[in-house]
Amino acid sequence: MATALRLRGVTKTFGTVRAVDDLDLEIPRGTTCGFIGPSGAGKTTCIRLIMSILFPDSGELSVLGHASALAAKDRIGYLPEERGVYRRMRVGAFLAYIGKLKGVPESAARARASRLLERLGLAGVEEKRCEDLSKGMLQRVQFVAALVNEPDLLILDEPFSGLDPVSVRRMREVIADEQRRGVTLLFSTHVMSHAEELCDHVVMIHRGRKVLDEPIAGLRRQYDVRTIRLEPLDADADVGALYDVPGVASVRRASGGWELRLVADSDPVDVMRRIPGLVVPARLEFARVTLEDIFVRLAQQGGAVRDEGALRAHLQGLDVGASA
């Protein structure tokens, strides 16, 4: 498969801070890659390097077959993390202007912008001034600006932050359409669940360095199942017998039931078989490993986690005001 994006040994330093450190990355065309990591990890700097908004101190880049995004900007759609529009410009004129900058004829840009605005629940806002729209509406307008040129490479930096659930659903539908059209999607987020739902490949960045570069399916195989979730048919059932099952390390209350943590070398299938004989289950399943778990585990291995609770809240998008 042809490569849409390739980085080799890319490094970028600001003063004494190494924002991106010797980064290698390769994204095949037509795939969706999650660019994940907590705020401040270096994701946005890396994207700005890809977009030739910043320039690396060392290393090589290839974007859609060109040595720099400057030669391919007409084929790239980019939604920056920092949202911005011309406040006094009308929405239709703004989107047409961005389209024209990317080589799309004005009439085609306006027509495509209208279709996308309608799909995102913003039909008829073309004649409104940008300053008259709410923050969430402006975010969707900017999302349209990233798509107005029908890009081959779409880079979305934290696209869902601050949006209501309905708007998130509408944007995800449009993203799904773009994926079907064959766009290469680089999706940057610090909220791991978003990446899990959208991506077939993830690259984790932590402190400017790549700590993981795997397909989601491979990750689930690689990071073994260590937890079983049990919801008893009788909510008051005695689960004391579960402590004696070989291979169970701990049993603790979890939302709507119990969570059994297994010891490292146990056979999860054997444990699973034994449970129904002890407690009648309404639901019994292996807890799928989450990106959040994987990230925390990787960060712990690197000795970089001081407060796991705060880190998990951040990776679930529960903190406010984070920036890369």
Partner: peptide, 17 residues
């Protein structure tokens, strides 16, 4: 204005500095 309204990064996605 372009810098403070953050539209500059949108523009830099379409044109070079």
């Amino acid at each position: 204005e372009e810098k403070s309204s953050r539209v500059v990064e949108v523009l830099l996605a379409a044109v070079s500095p």
